[in-house]
Amino acid sequence: MPEFAQINPYLLDEYAVQLVDTLGRVMVFSVIAAAIAVFVAASTAFGQGRIAAQAIDAIARQPEARGSITNTMILGLGLAETGGIYGLVVAILLLFANPLVNNLISLITGV
């Protein structure tokens, strides 16, 4: 059992042990969920690869329009990245600012 600076004095002992057990389980599942979120975020790379391939196709067909095709491609890449960034933000929240873990800790310590 990890050491806390203080335990909520109104909490019965067996409940405190149970809550600490739950806290550990929530932490483990948050890490797994963060890994799944990052995996889903990384899958936007397939879409981005398709955008880049199409842009290369267009440049090969029309080399004089290279500048505007490149600009449009970068814009499309940025827009396609949004889904990935959402997954990344969720993963960051789960790892560094998890509300469930914070709630459980405040329940245990009573602060």
């Binding site: 940025g78 990245e81 949004t82 990935g84 960034i85 959402y86 990344l88 933000v89 960051i92």
Partner: peptide
């Protein structure tokens, strides 16, 4: 929200 998350996610993941 989507406009700011794009910038924030990229820069913060670079920092991490």
């Amino acid at each position: 929200i989507s406009l700011s998350f794009r910038l924030y996610g990229n820069i913060f993941s670079g920092l991490i």
